[in-house]
Design a protein around this nucleic acid. Structure first.
Lengths: 127, 127
DNA sequence: GGAACCTTACCACGGCTTTGTGAAGGTTTG
DNA sequence: CAAACCTTCACAAAGCCGTGGTAAGGTTCC
């Protein structure tokens, strides 16, 4: 039993118990549960909680921002569409009819997705 | 003069003048200015405004979300740190000492930044 | 020059997010 | 088995976000 229950985890991580539950609700840190339903925070979860706090402080983010970043990683159509929109900031295509643009981006996304799926395998970043 | 002033742009884009200023404040659509300081919305800006609305509606986002996505594209240290944190969600490195992880990510960032700076001669002074 | 437009800078409000607290009840463990 | 912990749920306060309005003043253009 080297796992901490929620109040212990709260003390060593700097978050309140309430916030630990909220963070779980956002899908940011989801500890496993005991057979009776208790949250069990292991070293990995505790570390993620501490670095999460540093991340937020250092860049002035909110939990919602990290949640959104997570959506961007998860929902590839979201990511490609948002990135497409941002890219149009610098070089915008005058020749694409206004109401077609989003549809066009989506088509592009589907092409990309089909391609990615076909070649499958991990798209993990190299580092 | 094929550029619209803010009220005209508001009418054809569906945003209120107030929101157009707000959107500019978030760095999402920044029209050029006339010599007297009037915002001038060209076809490109108008298109971006319309697609922005579609983007928000389709994925249920807020303007703040898109602003954050933009920061992620702009600030490479933000991006790498957030992505690093998210990556630790699935496979967390038990072997990395807790307090070293963020520092490690930051070091990585500084290496990247140094590289970028070295090859970009026109950056303003850092302080 | 004057009408009609634009600028920035505030204050304000309704709604959603964040966070706390308490109630009612189940789990762990000495 | 009892003390101390945990669970979920709900209510509530504080704060932020999106949005409107208005005031004081500058720009455009007929």
């Amino acid at each position: 039993m080297d796992a901490l229950t929620i109040n212990e985890a709260a003390e060593t991580s700097g978050w309140s118990p309430r916030m630990l539950r909220y963070i779980e609700e956002l899908g940011l840190v989801e500890p496993p549960r005991s057979s009776g339903g208790y949250r069990l925070y292991g070293p990995g979860e505790l570390q993620r909680l501490r670095t999460l706090r540093q991340l937020l402080d250092r860049f002035g983010l909110g939990l919602g921002d990290v949640g959104f970043a997570r959506r961007m990683q998860t929902e590839s159509d979201l990511r490609t569409t948002v990135e497409g929109w941002l890219r149009s900031e610098a070089a915008r295509p005058e020749h694409v009819p206004a109401d077609d643009w989003l549809a066009w981006e989506q088509d592009k996304h589907e092409r990309l997705l089909a391609e990615a799926t076909r070649r499958d395998t991990t798209l993990r970043e190299t580092r």
